[in-house]
């Protein structure tokens, strides 16, 4: 008998750590991992809610999120490799060509 609140709070903590990872790390790969962590935190919350209302849709939704995440990782990592090839670094602070 675990209150759903616990899961939600855990999910929020994991999500926040993911956010922090994106904000304070400079290594593009670790930033990307942090994004995966955020996705996981959201998934956890969805499944927890789904299990409270006794409904499958939550699990199916998470299933799709995992599938899309797999696609996203494939393309994202390819982009990072390509960026590394041109810039010779994966430090995101070395890239500021979007400057206005």
């Amino acid at each position: 008998m675990i209150p759903v609140d616990y899961y939600i709070i855990l999910s929020a903590i994991l999500f926040t750590i993911g956010v922090l990872g994106v904000l304070i790390r400079r290594n593009a790969l670790i930033i990307f991992m942090s994004i995966e962590l955020m996705l996981n935190a959201a998934n956890l919350a969805i499944v927890a809610f789904g299990s409270v209302i006794q409904n499958f849709s939550g699990q199916i939704f998470v299933f799709f999120v995992i599938a899309v995440a797999a696609a996203e990782v494939a393309v994202g990592l390819a982009l990072i490799v390509e960026i590394f090839r041109t810039k010779k670094t994966i430090d995101v602070d070395q890239m500021s060509s979007m400057k206005g």
């Binding site: 759903v4 609140d5 939600i8 929020a12 922090l20 299990s51």
Partner: peptide, 23 residues
């Protein structure tokens, strides 16, 4: 981030939570 965590947890627990609070 700390602000976000607090807000998110509070919102999720108080407002967005479905009825029936045990798994």
């Amino acid at each position: 981030s700390v602000l976000l965590a607090a807000e998110a947890a509070y919102l999720l627990v108080t407002k967005a939570k479905p009825a029936g609070d045990v798994l």
